[in-house]
Design a protein around this nucleic acid. Structure first.
Lengths: 141, 141
DNA sequence: TCAACTGTAACTGATAATATTACAGTACCG
DNA sequence: CGGTACTGTAATATTATCAGTTACAGTTGA
């Protein structure tokens, strides 16, 4: 899977952590260790899915618009990485005579589709808020 | 994830399906739709993990050495794709002052590690035998 | 001793992931 | 107004990863 998901989660946790709940793409990029353009692309997607507001122009940036405890990793996963489990390579060939070769792609797709659901269910149990707590706990130790 | 896992599963199902339980890398590659070298690489790994025997030389090939119902997808996953869930890109920087940036990589790794376990648990419930049955059922429909 | 196999390494080409550059659009602030 | 500080997005370059190909040594059976 590409790391847009990681960038999104990191950014949301960061916003949740900041006193104002707000930051620019430059600040986020610096914190995440990537470039601002990429951050803006990911943020743009998060905005479309209603996790944050953006303000253009001077003094603008990104601001969380939901409680960190209400945003699950599953929400984020669905927004920008759903279905990323299955390799984009397909084995077998529907036109072949062999039962195995001709049906493998479909059966395998089913396996990965359900795996994706399992993964999503796991992510459902983790929130931006809980990740932030986890990080803060780590600091004290 | 790369598709070695898919090739391995397909190959094992194919072997389980063939009357003799045996095939050469050329035959498997043809069925899977890839090249023999790649098949041999994957098979070599499956042999090392005890799922099949190989016979070199004329008349050789690969042969299942365990019952299809006993080989789970988790076994295969562990053999050649474990840990493939996490993107190989890491966000944040341990050297930074910010709590979030400096701890994100570790916390994220934990999330993906557990996700990997979840995925493995799901794969534990699927066997080469059950996949073959699923394919045969599909044919009759 | 030949033909049919596996086991690997080295190389090539294709595709996907990431970073960079560039610029239009928007909002605040003097 | 006009300048500055932002976002949004397209186009391009760069790098990494994946897959296919070629080549050849080692093994086995006929």
């Amino acid at each position: 899977m590409n790391s847009d998901f990681v960038i999104a989660v990191h950014s949301l946790v960061l916003l949740a952590h900041l006193p104002e709940g707000m930051a620019t793409s430059d600040e986020i990029a610096e914190n995440v260790c990537t470039n601002p353009v990429r951050v803006r692309k990911v943020m743009s997607c998060l905005r479309k899915n209603g996790f944050l507001d953006t303000r253009e122009g001077s003094g603008g940036g990104y601001k969380l618009c939901r409680a960190p405890e209400e945003i699950t990793l599953a929400d984020v996963y669905r927004s920008l990485a759903a279905g990323s489990l299955a390799p984009n390579w397909c084995s077998g060939d529907p036109k072949k005579d062999c039962v195995v070769s001709s049906n493998m792609a479909e059966v395998m797709a089913g396996v990965f589709c359900e795996a994706d659901r399992q993964l999503e269910a796991y992510f459902e149990r983790i929130t931006i808020g809980s990740m932030l707590s986890g990080i803060k706990a780590k600091q004290q130790a």
